[in-house]
Every structure is written in C-alpha cells, then in structure tokens.
C-alpha cells in the first residue's frame, strides 16, 4: 500500500526535477556562450555556491509548509531574529571577552539557543495554523510582523554590527569550490529529503497538503503534524539566520525581505504545488542553483541595474506556475 503510493508520488515528481536539470544545463551553455571564459569558471561557481545557501535553506523552510497546504511568510523574520540574537550574544560574550570556556563552546551554545528560538517561532505558527485553524497565510503574516517587532525592540531599530571574527571567519572555510555554507545547505537538504520521503511524518504531510479532510478521516492528527512541519520550518529559518550573520557579520530586523518572494519562487520553480501535496527536495536544490546561476549571469552585465532582476524573478514565477500547471493537467487528462 505504502509502496505503491511511494511509486506514484515518485512518478509525478520525476517530471519537474528532470525539467530543472535540463534548464540548468541550458543556463550553463547559455552562460558559457554569452560570456566565454567567465561563466564556467571555478571562481564563479565558488561565488554561486557561497550565495545560494541562505535562501536555499529558507526555500526548504517554505517548502515543507507549502507541501502541507500552507505557506510560511515569517521565515525571513525568524531568520533575522535568530541572526540578531546570535550577533548580540556573541559580541556580548566573545566580543567583550567575558565568557567561560572556549569561543567554540560559546558559538555552540549560541547556535543551540538560536535553534530553540527558531523552533519556538515555528511552534507559534504551527499552533496558529493547526490548533487554532487560522489560514496559514494570515497566521504567518501576523507572526512575521510580531517577530519583526521583537527584533526591532531588541535592536531598537538599529543594525547589529561587530560580530566577533572568531565566528565570521568560519564563513571563509572552503573545500575546493564549496564553502562551509553550502555544506550546511547540503546537510539540511539531505535531512529534509529523508524526512519527506522516508518517514511516515513526511508522507502524512503530503497527504494533509493534498486533502486535509481525507487526512483527518484516515486517522492523521493534522494538528500535531502541522505543528511539527512549522517547527521544522522555524528551525531551518534559524539555520539560515546563523549562516547570514556569519557571512555578512551584521544583522538587521528587516534584512532581505525580498527573500520571501524569492524562496516562494524557488519552491514553485522546483515543482512544488502551491496548493499543497506535491513537491520534491531535489527540485528545490536544483532550482536554487539554477536561479543563482541566472542571477550571477545577470550580474555580469554591468549595464543592467539590479532592479531588472525583480522583473525577471516575477515573470519567472508566473511563467513557471503556468508551465507546471499546463504540464500537470496534460498528465492528468492523458491518464
């Protein structure tokens, strides 16, 4: 029974992943033709992999909520809150020299407490969406505003700077073209892949997303699973926050608000159904890489202002929605 369902899910998922893989090769070819000797270089890919982890992880966070039939608009604010707490904590301890143990221990403590904060924020969303039945979009919109407010109160509206170098130098660690950030993203993606495909919780999340009523009647505790899904989302957001403060060595309550739209774009690009119940982690990873490749390519044209990117992202989001819709519907009618 479960085996059969697994195969069916896989069948419908194979398609978008294949599509993105083709797109990725196409973007690579276009890049190397348009900018010979500049695009397909080690340095360029090193910078691509350096930049994509933050919103790749955010996209994973949005992804699990989208699969469960909701959405999480608060991820960026959770990430910013976590980055602010991390930055403040580290500069108060390591930065000013009053701490016990080694800096590494302090960083570990900070990471753990930030994970807890992320999970708490996620649990708030999960409670609102699951237990209190607030539409996910409204719940996360409100909690995002609340979390933004908390960050603003902590920082009094200022940006956090001067994060100790013991922590920020970690961002410089590199293995060939892959920086440490990318490994964090890779680990998150692998764990998410296992959760979504190999655990009963993952399968149940897909079921809740495709038909929550049917899920209730087949004995699934929606509330608990939704709580877990949003907690995972909050946790991933906190990871993204840590990476961002590590890379930028600063944090702001309203940093990167356009990442919300970008992570939704990645999800849709990666073949996630915005109505829930369909999606694939591999698609998300590939979509993240493809979109960052496109972004880097656009950056190489110096005469194009960065605002043109907004037009491209918006248009891509709409086009991908429509393309996925048409392909999915053709698939259904043929069967």
């Amino acid at each position: 029974m479960t085996g059969k369902a697994g195969i069916n899910l896989k069948k419908s998922m194979n398609n978008p992943v294949f599509r993105i893989a083709v797109l990725m090769i196409a973007v690579g070819i276009i890049g190397s033709v348009v900018m010979p000797g500049k695009f397909l270089t080690e340095a360029n890919f090193a910078s691509i992999f350096k930049q994509l982890s933050e919103y790749g992880i955010l996209a994973l966070a949005v992804f699990i909520c989208m699969v469960s039939g909701g959405i999480d608009l608060s991820v960026v604010y959770i990430a910013n809150l976590c980055a602010i707490v991390m930055g403040t904590f580290l500069s108060k301890t390591i930065g000013s020299g009053n701490y016990a143990g080694s800096p590494a221990l302090m960083i570990a403590v900070a990471c753990l407490s930030v994970f807890v904060i992320g999970c708490i924020c996620g649990a708030l969303n999960g409670l609102l969406v699951g237990r209190l039945r607030v539409p996910a979009m409204l719940a996360t919109l409100g909690s995002g505003q609340l979390i933004l407010g908390i960050s603003t109160v902590i920082t009094k509206g200022q940006a956090i700077t001067g994060v100790p170098s013991e922590f920020t130098k970690l961002a410089g660690i590199r293995f060939w073209i892959f920086p440490l950030n990318f490994f964090v993203f890779a680990v998150c993606a692998v764990v998410m892949y296992i959760i979504m495909t190999r655990t009963t919780f993952g399968i149940r999340t897909f079921l809740i997303g495709s038909n929550s009523r049917a899920a209730v009647f087949s004995g699934i505790q929606n509330n608990l699973d939704l709580l877990k899904a949003y907690m995972i989302s909050g946790f991933l957001a906190s990871v993204s926050g840590i990476i961002s403060v590590m890379r930028m060595s600063s944090a702001k309550p309203d940093y990167g608000t356009s990442y919300i739209m970008f992570s939704i774009l990645i999800c849709v690009f990666g073949g996630t159904n915005p109505n829930g119940g369909q999606g694939n982690v591999v698609g998300i990873v590939l979509a993240t890489i493809v979109l960052q490749m496109v972004a880097t390519m656009m950056n190489m044209f110096h005469n194009i202002s960065s605002f043109y990117r907004d037009i491209v992202w918006g248009a891509l989001l709409l086009i991908m929605l429509i393309v996925n819709y048409i392909i999915d519907n053709r698939h259904v009618t043929r069967r």
């Binding site: 605002f307 907004d310 037009i311 709409l318």
Partner: peptide, 8 residues
Amino acid sequence: GTSSIFSG
C-alpha cells in the same frame, strides 16, 4: 510575482 514585476 506581479508585485515584483511592477516594482522592477
């Protein structure tokens, strides 16, 4: 998506 296009 359209918001991003308009502001872009």
